[in-house]
Design a binder for these strands. Structure first.
Lengths: 113, 113
DNA sequence: TAGGAATATTCGAATGTATTAATATCAATT
DNA sequence: AATTGATATTAATACATTCGAATATTCCTA
């Protein structure tokens, strides 16, 4: 049982373990977006984004609703946003040591982080 | 820059994306443990655990200190524990739907979750 | 109902990750 | 300095993930 739980947790983290999927969740932070809107904002291949969305769907991190021609995605549980926020705190505390990005970080507009 | 940040975040999540590594962090929750103690508690191959520890070290999720013959590990930043706790809340909210574990879950002693 | 727009799926090649077995390193002890 | 105990590293194999290209599906509208 413990192990099943940990596999479940690991699966969620695995779903978060890609820059594009993180970008998607961050874009969905403030509300729904259509697949097309995501593709445009990400500036990536349609198929690629669609595949990443499939991963997020499979792990149930997002929910989707069809509206005619389009599919709108949203973050399924706001706890996930809390997790991302907590991690952001973590990243800010450790990015400097981990990479040599301290100067760049300080110059980065708030909105970007 | 944005992208570098997301790669960094994804890397951290990647480090968390394995049941054994989650188990290690959970074992380290309440204090340091030697590699040997971890190996014993996990009941896994020495080399395997050591490699997972290497991943956690590489991503700086744990710190280690040598004490003679042994190496003691600890969670480097308590925020990580908070993240795991948040995730636990998440799992409890969604485990039932995600897997068919509801019965097992209800039978599981509190201490295990 | 044919065509077009939006999205999803499948396939293959490249790359990355996990595991085991074998070996190496390092510190303590004799 | 040789041996032992604790931990780390390397190498090989198996398995999973990612990506782009091509194709399929679904819904809308002419």
């Amino acid at each position: 049982m413990q192990d099943a739980l940990r596999r479940f947790k690991a699966d969620i983290f695995q779903a978060l373990a890609h820059p594009t999927r993180i970008a998607i969740l961050e874009l969905l932070r403030d509300g729904d977006l259509s697949a097309g809107a995501l593709i445009e904002k990400l500036g990536m291949e349609q198929a690629n984004v669609s595949q990443h969305l499939a991963v997020l769907r499979a792990k149930q991190l997002v929910s989707n609703r069809k509206a005619g021609n389009q599919v709108f995605y949203s973050v399924r549980d706001p706890i996930l946003i809390d997790v991302l926020d907590l991690m952001r705190t973590y990243f800010h505390a450790h990015l400097k040591e981990s990479l040599g990005m301290l100067d760049e970080l300080d110059k980065t507009p708030e909105a970007v982080r």
